[in-house]
């Protein structure tokens, strides 16, 4: 045993050390060592005995407080409230569906190439091709449209498209000149397509992928909104 333990081994616990234990002592929630110390101290300490007695009286007084019956009005309210059923299963499912279809929308759009630099490439083709081929000027802007756009749409990777559109000045001339004899024949047919479909107009152009993307987008918006509304109604209810 260390020297200081030997020094203090016989010191009796002070009232200040015992008093915090009295409440637990009342409830028999003390360790055997603590119980021994408390009991030993109490036998010789009237002040702590008094402390214990007043604590006990306090607990007795509390236990003697009456149980208050539930007021009838409250009992009626409690019986009548039918809280909204836990929205828990539905709301998260809707939110998950919303996220999933949003992700699907993005994937479909990517696949469709709408997020690639397509319009820029085809825009380059148009001004480059226009001055290069002066003669059938009105027909000229139409050519890049039907020629380049279907080619561009067929490609899934964005990188080859600049190859089609960007070197439009030299190559465009090449690729378009053989078509020139056919211009006069093809011009009347593809007249309706506008000069170069601007990006919003490309969205409106029907295509299966684009339709799917739109449906997915709508679904994600609807399920997200439904999830929000149901969640809000539940917490307000």
């Amino acid at each position: 045993m260390t020297w200081w333990r030997r020094l203090f081994r016989d010191r009796s616990p002070t009232c200040a050390e015992i008093r915090p234990l009295l409440s637990a002592f009342l409830d028999d929630q003390v360790t055997p060592a603590e119980r021994a110390r408390v009991t030993a101290h109490l036998t010789g300490c009237p002040r702590c005995q008094e402390d214990l007695a007043t604590l006990r009286a306090t607990v007795t007084a509390l236990r003697a407080l009456p149980t208050i019956p539930v007021p009838p009005a409250l009992a009626r309210r409690l019986a009548q409230t039918r809280p909204a059923p836990p929205a828990r299963p539905l709301v998260p499912a809707l939110q998950r569906a919303s996220l999933a279809t949003a992700a699907l929308t993005v994937l479909l759009l990517l696949a469709n190439g709408l997020l690639s630099p397509g319009p820029a490439a085809t825009d380059l083709a148009r001004p480059a091709a226009a001055p290069a081929l002066p003669a059938p000027a009105p027909a000229r802007p139409v050519e890049p449209g039907p020629e380049v756009a279907p080619a561009a749409r067929a490609l899934t990777a964005p990188t080859p498209r600049p190859a089609v559109g960007a070197p439009a000045a030299p190559a465009g001339e090449q690729s378009l000149s053989p078509a020139r004899p056919a211009d006069t024949q093809t011009v009347p047919a593809p007249a309706p397509p506008p000069a170069e479909p601007a990006w919003p107009e490309r969205l409106l152009r029907p295509s299966p992928l684009r339709t799917l993307a739109l449906v997915a987008l709508l679904t994600s918006l609807l399920s997200g909104a439904a999830g929000l509304l149901l969640g809000r109604r539940r917490s307000a209810g």
């Binding site: 409440s23 604590l55 509390l62």
Partner: peptide
């Protein structure tokens, strides 16, 4: 300890 302090204060 919380019960001990609460009871003592109430007392």
């Amino acid at each position: 300890s919380r019960l001990s302090r609460g009871r003592a204060r109430l007392r």
